[in-house]
Amino acid sequence: MSQIEINDVSVTFNQKGRDVKAVQDVSLKIEKGEIYGVVGLSGAGKSTLVRTINGLQRPTTGTVNVAGVDITHANKKILSETRKKIGFIFQNFNLINNRTVAQNIAFALTAGGYPEKQQPEKIDELLGRVGLQDRKDTYPTQLSGGQKQRVGIARALANDPEILLCDEATSALDLETAEEIITILKDINTRLNITIVFITHQLEVAKDLFDRVAVMENGRIVEQTTAYNLFARPQSDMATRLVNRFLTTQLPDDVIHWLANLPGRILTLKYQGDDSLNPIITEIARDTGVEISILQGRIEFIHNQAIGILSVFVTGEPEAVIRAITAFKTKVNSVEVTPK
C-alpha cells in the first residue's frame, strides 16, 4: 500500500451560488520516502488538493488514505492524530508573529503532546537542523523570508512527521534563498526518509527536487511522470507549455525580427544533453544542402541527467529547409519551429 492514496477526489466549492470545481477526479499514489511534485498554474487546484491530504480540506467525493488510514471518514480524534504525523509548510510561512521562534515551535510540540520539560532540548535540535540555533528568542518579524521558512520547516518537523506537505514553500523567496530551502528539504528527505509532497508553479524547483511529478490543469491531473521526463518529453499541452516557458532560450525580439526578413527558419532543438549535436548538424547541413548557424544554446541538469537546448537558424532552398527539419526530427528529442 502506498503511503498516500488519493482516490477519485473531487472538491467543489460553492461560491455565491455557483459551483466551482477546484479539484476533479484526481487519483494519485505517493510512495514512502519519495519527493512528489505537483505543478500547474495558479488556480489549477494544487493548494486545494494538497489540503485534502491532511484533512484541512474535505473532499466533496472520493477518499484519501494516509498510511492506511482513511482520513476522509475519520473522526476528529483520528484526524488530529494523523495531522501530527504530517508537517505542513506554507508560502507565507504563517508563523505566530507575537510569539518567538522557540514559542512557535513549542506550540507544535505541545499540540503533538510532547512533554513540556523536554521541549527546549527538542527545539534546539530542530533549529539546529535548519541552521537557526541562535535565533531562538527572536520574533518572526525580525527574520528574513528564508529564515522564516526555516522556522516553518522546524515547526513542521516538530512531531517527527512521516510526511511533509509544502504549499508553494519557495514561491515567496528569491531564487537563491529558494535553493537553500530546497537543499534543506532534500537533506531532510534523505536523512529522515520523510515523504515530501511539494506543490509549486516554479519549474526551477521541479528540476532540482522532485522524483516524480504530476501536472495539474483546471482541477485535473493531466500528466504524471518523472522529473526528467517532464522536461525531456512532456506529453500534455500544459506540461509542454510550462516546460517550454522554463527551458526555451528566448531570443531577443530584435534578433527574431531581423531573422524574419531573411529566408530561413529558426529551430529550437531539444536533445539528450550528453549527446553531442555537432556531427548531426554537420551531417544534416551536408545531406540537405542548407546552412545552419547556431544562435544560442544551454544545458540543464535534471537529477544529474542533462537536457540540451539549442536554437539554430536554417537557411537554403525552401524544400531543403523542410528536409532539414524532418531530418532533425528523427535525430533529436523535439524540434520546435518558430513561426514566421
Binding site: 505542513f88 506554507f90 504563517n94 507544535a108 515547526r155
Partner: peptide, 9 residues
C-alpha cells in the same frame, strides 16, 4: 491554518 495543521485543539 498552520496551527490547525499541527493537530492542535
Amino acid at each position: 491554518e498552520a496551527a490547525r495543521s499541527t493537530g492542535a485543539s
